[in-house]
């Protein structure tokens, strides 16, 4: 692949990731349904994870596994393994937060009988 084309593609991936994050943020802040707010938060985290993985990518890099195949193969470039490890951690944390959020949503629904934020919010913001 041409180098400038690769650069362009790279920026495309970054842009998409940031766009996904902004869509998630929009959902979390604007939507009225609590479930959609939780979905928005998850979408935002996914966008960030995409961005992190994209940051660690090198042109033509293979999976960062030190093996026979890598030693004997012609391709000697590995992608950066650190962002991938970070993303795994971030996904697990995101899973935990989403689980807590959904359990709170269930409790709010039982208490108020609705998921609409406007009808629930009696605490001053």
């Amino acid at each position: 692949m041409d180098s400038s084309l690769f650069q362009l593609l790279n920026y495309g991936v970054y842009g998409t990731a940031i766009l996904v994050m902004l869509i998630g943020l929009y959902g979390a802040l604007v939507k009225k349904s609590l479930l959609k707010v939780v979905i928005g938060l998850s979408v935002m985290e996914s966008g960030l994870n995409l961005l992190i993985v994209a940051l660690g990518y090198l042109k033509g890099g293979t999976a960062p596994i030190f093996s026979e195949g890598f030693l004997n193969g012609s391709n000697k470039i590995m992608v950066d393994p650190v962002p991938q490890a970070l993303v795994l951690t971030a996904i697990v944390i995101g899973f935990g937060v989403t689980a807590v959020a959904l359990s709170l949503v269930i409790r709010l629904y039982r208490h108020h009988g609705t998921l609409n934020i406007d009808e629930i919010r009696n605490l001053k913001w």
Partner: peptide, 12 residues
Amino acid sequence: AEASFKYLMLGS
């Protein structure tokens, strides 16, 4: 639960 949800949203 509401206070907690608010905290969770800002926290995430």
